[in-house]
Write a protein that binds this DNA or RNA. Structure first.
Length: 424
RNA sequence: GGAGAGAUGGCUGAGUGGUCGAAAGCGGCACCCUGCUAAGGUGUUAUACCCUUCCCGGGUAUCGAGGGUUCGAAUCCCUCUCUCUCCGCCA
């Protein structure tokens, strides 16, 4: 959520940001400001009354201690009406506070000034392209290639779980495991701390990163135990520090975390879901940073650079998009997408998304730091995939095919294959 | 899964209805003392929110969470969560 001060001080600025993000109705801003005003008024009245009541109770205590029961009794008689009034005010306060919070949660994050204003993916800027995007005729889409090799079993996945839950076997399984290790090892080398996290989280955590109340439909649930299966490692990793205060000397804190991810992906069908393009369960290595506000945009570029490094080293052709205001999502201020070239499908596949959230997540989760002057401030959070496995797999399974139907092991992965050069 | 014990500030740990946001110790920070080191002295040291706002300051809430009793709750009652010990089970 945004800082309420910003909304109160510059409502028009916030409204314009909402419009740029594609929200049509900005009336929530005025509604919030008005609700906030009413809430503060109620808080003041309730606090004042409680203060009175507290001092009366203290007086009673004093008189009782001195054995002046009659005088005490007189004061007690005065407290009756007050009690009822406090209760009433507290209820009103609670209601207004809930209303205020829910309005606040409906206002999206404000895009950074360097982000292009736009409405659709047409308006995203392709800021960088790396590698060639040729597509030899003999090259097969990864699903056909893997079917021949017996490397991915979608049918048995359907039998055992359902669509979107494939089995990987043999070379594909080994390739995926190697990639995971390569991603994690590289991140560790760049100063990230490896974290292994729970795959199920409780309601508070889902709320902390904003999956609920808004996006509950994206997650699988375990109703009996009130767990949510994580849709991304961002959820457990960011919540890891929920309600905590860092010392400025501890920042930045950077994690790399591999987890499977589960997404219901309700309503997505068609050619987009062919093969490994879109799954209900997939693996991802996530990079998460907690940084001082003054450093977050540098940290974003570094994060993006760290993710791109993996693609470059793997020899994968990719492009980098700077997402426009309308295509970037509710919580981000600036976001880059990295898309790998899939020569078998002749299309780009999103393999990473690197975002700065500024204080949007941290404020909601109460993650703060004590600055050089001892003042407590909201810090900034960032995250990005480094990388999402299935689409990287798809790309490699296509780009590294040989005309003889073998798969070349990418150079940087060879250490994970005992020096083997081809997978058959 | 069964039985019992417990949850207090950064940590240890007192506190069983009244001036308790909470003793004491440790740790942290500031200053003083000290030739250096070690030790010592004084003070300070939770978080959120509201008001004020240059600073200072004032108020409210919080002793695992939520509810209740009471003029008044860390303290009494109810529900939940978590931790520990023993038994059972188990990778």
């Amino acid at each position: 959520m945004l800082d309420i001060q910003l909304i109160k001080n510059e409502p028009d600025f916030v409204k314009q940001a909402m419009l740029n993000k594609g929200e049509k109705d900005t009336s929530v801003v005025d509604l919030l400001i008005e609700t906030d005003r009413k809430w503060r008024e109620m808080v003041q009245r309730a606090d004042q009354l409680r203060s009175q009541s507290n001092s009366m109770a203290k007086d009673i205590g004093k008189l009782m201690g001195q054995g002046k029961k009659d005088e005490a009794q007189k004061i007690i008689e005065q407290t009756g009406a007050m009690k009822a009034e406090i209760k009433q005010l507290e209820e009103a306060e609670k209601e207004l506070s809930a209303e205020r919070t829910s309005l606040l949660l409906r206002i999206p994050n404000v895009p950074h000034e360097s982000v292009p204003v736009g409405h659709t993916e047409e308006d995203n800027q392709t800021v960088f392209t790396h590698g060639d995007t040729s597509a030899p005729e003999w090259l097969k889409p990864h699903w056909d290639f893997c079917a021949e090799k017996g490397w991915i079993d979608f049918e048995r996945g359907v039998k055992v779980s359902g669509a979107g839950f494939p089995f990987y076997l043999g070379g594909a399984a080994r390739l995926q495991r190697a990639l995971i290790n390569y991603f994690i090892d590289t991140a560790i080398g760049k100063g990230y701390t490896e974290l292994q996290a729970p795959y199920m989280v409780n309601e508070d955590s889902a709320r902390g990163t904003g999956q609920i109340p808004d996006k509950e439909d994206m997650m699988y649930t375990v109703p009996r135990d009130q767990f949510f299966l994580i849709p991304t490692a961002e959820v457990p990793v960011t919540n890891f520090h929920r309600n905590e205060i860092f010392e400025h000397s501890e920042l930045p804190v950077q994690y790399v975390c591999y987890t499977p991810c589960w997404r219901r992906e309700a309503g997505s069908y068609g050619k987009d879901v062919r093969g490994l393009n879109r799954l209900h369960q997939f693996d991802k290595v996530e990079l998460v940073k907690f940084v001082k506000p003054s450093e977050s945009y540098n940290a974003l570029e570094q994060l993006r650079e760290d993710a791109e490094y993996l693609l470059k080293e793997l020899g994968i052709s990719y492009r980098r998009l700077l997402m426009c205001t309308g295509d970037m999502g509710f919580t981000q201020t600036k976001k880059y997408d990295l898309e790998a070239w899939s020569p078998g499908q002749k299309r780009w596949l999103e393999v990473s998304s690197c975002s700065n959230f500024e204080g949007f997540q941290a404020r909601r989760m109460m993650v703060r730091f004590r600055d050089e002057n001892g003042k407590i401030e909201t810090l900034h959070t960032l995250n990005g995939s480094g990388l999402a496995l299935p689409r990287v797999m798809a790309t490699i399974l296509e780009q590294y095919q040989t005309p003889e139907g073998r798969l070349t092991v990418p150079e940087v992965l060879k250490p994970y294959f005992g020096g083997v050069s081809y997978l058959d």
